[in-house]
Design a protein around this nucleic acid. Sequence first.
DNA 1: GATGAATGAGCCTTCATTCAT
DNA 2: GATGAATGAAGGCTCATTCAT
Lengths: 214, 214, 214, 214
Amino acid sequence: MTEPALQTDPRPPRTLSKDARRTQLIEATISTMAEFGYSRTTLTAVARRAGLSHGLVLFHFHTKENLLSETLDHLSAEYRANWQAALASAGDRPEAQLEALVRADFNLSICTRDRLAAWCAFWGESQSRPIYQARCGSNDDHYNQMLEGICARMNTVHGYAHDPARVSRLIRISIEGVWLDLMTMATPYPTQEAMATVWLGLSALYPRHFQTRP
Amino acid sequence: MTEPALQTDPRPPRTLSKDARRTQLIEATISTMAEFGYSRTTLTAVARRAGLSHGLVLFHFHTKENLLSETLDHLSAEYRANWQAALASAGDRPEAQLEALVRADFNLSICTRDRLAAWCAFWGESQSRPIYQARCGSNDDHYNQMLEGICARMNTVHGYAHDPARVSRLIRISIEGVWLDLMTMATPYPTQEAMATVWLGLSALYPRHFQTRP
Amino acid sequence: MTEPALQTDPRPPRTLSKDARRTQLIEATISTMAEFGYSRTTLTAVARRAGLSHGLVLFHFHTKENLLSETLDHLSAEYRANWQAALASAGDRPEAQLEALVRADFNLSICTRDRLAAWCAFWGESQSRPIYQARCGSNDDHYNQMLEGICARMNTVHGYAHDPARVSRLIRISIEGVWLDLMTMATPYPTQEAMATVWLGLSALYPRHFQTRP
Amino acid sequence: MTEPALQTDPRPPRTLSKDARRTQLIEATISTMAEFGYSRTTLTAVARRAGLSHGLVLFHFHTKENLLSETLDHLSAEYRANWQAALASAGDRPEAQLEALVRADFNLSICTRDRLAAWCAFWGESQSRPIYQARCGSNDDHYNQMLEGICARMNTVHGYAHDPARVSRLIRISIEGVWLDLMTMATPYPTQEAMATVWLGLSALYPRHFQTRP
DNA sequence: GATGAATGAGCCTTCATTCAT
DNA sequence: GATGAATGAAGGCTCATTCAT
């Protein structure tokens, strides 16, 4: 993907393809939310970050609500594409799939401070906004079922005996938990250490398959 | 702790002690944040929920920023008091302390939907507000050091070999992770199941001490 | 009625009774509409004319739509009170009632340039706004039935033979027609001449009762 | 007059003569004003109704002000052409000319709901816009003088004794008055009844010449 | 203590207008 | 000729804050 102009270019080309503009504005929204939080993400701030006028934002997205909604969609789609790609190239063994999924979640193109912070801003609002709720992490049924399936196969293939729903949930929230740390801590630990923490959990749950350090 | 009047009383007494008023308004703030989220928590909404005028809110807290800040302090203090009380009556054995701490976190007076939602609202903003950040969960150094100490003693006393910092972090984020689930899921699982999920992690980490179900 | 401060006072009293403020703002709305027309009647313009802040307008009326709606109500009520008072003191004879009604419509406290212009601004919008339509002149069923009744009694009492619905409508639109003139003409004729024009119609319709000039 | 394409054609020819485009856009303006009123007549709405882009509207009319101004001119010219044609074929007798003028005003190609509504929208604004005022009905000196002349000849030829200025004004405002009714009433009476109302006035003013019903 | 009128900064949104294609 | 992306002024509205009562 070619990166859009963003604010690095002092004068972006006056006319861009419709899709490129939309993507550019969504990226500007993400980084604005990361810096200011949900409540102070204004159209003016987004537009300024993109180096464009606020009128243009509404020309492309009609309402602020819609801009935010599409930004969340964008993040969702990006996240899904990331784990699906990882899964696709992981082969058939459940332990390999599990490893691929975890590594994917700490992929440096996904696990950015900006993106995590944007997610977090949406989480904070999602409790009171059904529109967001459906698209925030824990409600991604597709992901949950997939992960639960892998855990179930860890049982059947390798003889473990964890409740699949519960163990898959534990793995998922371990990841979300360190993410939350990375966002909310004043001086967060490195991503490598975040992944090691999740790995510690995996090695405890599946001692014969996740012995080594990541 | 004496419960404040709140909105259950149609007409609270016109004059209350300064502290009682402040507590009443803080409780109103918590439930307003839980219902509307951070960005739509207005002074008027808080005042209405408390059955008072908005002028009075500022009379007691001077600014909105200060009201929110003190609300977060209130939640922090309440949380701290809860785990400290649990710890105090847990005896000396680290496994008992660990169990007490986990049970305390799912205590029904702490683990309310209102309170969780309010926490979540603050988390969402904390990334962009240093004022909040210092007081949000993962930055409570006192708690972290205490938990890490217990994990270290699990090693020395019972012969486990987990990195104390890492394992204590894993336990903490498990709890925060299920909390996040409870808040953001459309139809969350019961608190009991949330605790069982954390327990699954504990039993994997400390198989000789957390075998049985909670 | 005591006139509110309006813009004549450079600094109106900071606090007025709720009703007085509302009346003051409605009067400011009328004269703003008269000067600028419907489409350029902004809240800021109304507030400036009242010597107050625009925030206060919304404090009292919540929305612009509501302000305009209540302004129209005010004009309607005022107009109705005017003709009802005239009718009440006109005695029983239909010709006296007719004369009283017509004179009332050119009463100098009703037939102001400001008020006529405000009416006209509403007329212009009423076609596309059902909310206004119901309260604009020709839809005042109470007035229409009353006038038709008087015309019917002119027939029965004095032996005229005009279709009551039609003749009462003709009288009404004569009045509205000269009003429209007074508003839209660059250099309108005097009110006295306006009334004389209506009188000419009456004297033609009822030659035995409206011979003399008004 | 050749009818322009309007919105009936799903895809009007990409290239039209300059004049045809202008007429098409003016017609679109009239019907937009009729539906939405003056204050909500936007260039985009006009363009959409014409099935064209808003850019094109400004290409042809330069400013919105100019579009509206030319629309009013169009209505004025159309109105004038209508009564002049009627007058031209009415012969010399003043009572025939009067009848022809009145019938012309209720001509179904002039007295459309769309056109009346557009007139009304302009009236509502004309009070505060000198640009419109000069071209709105009551200020059409040509028409007024012509009508006054006819009334004067009713006096000299047939022995009536009405003040020509006053009686001609009464006739004109009767017509404008019923027009106003047709526009502003929720459920207006039929055009035929509107004309009968005017006729009632004429028959009262000129009993020996307008006895029969229209 | 308590109320609520009053202010004004800042937001989202509309829309006329410009201009590159 | 024609389109539609882009701009920016201005409007309605929300809301924290001030202040007279």
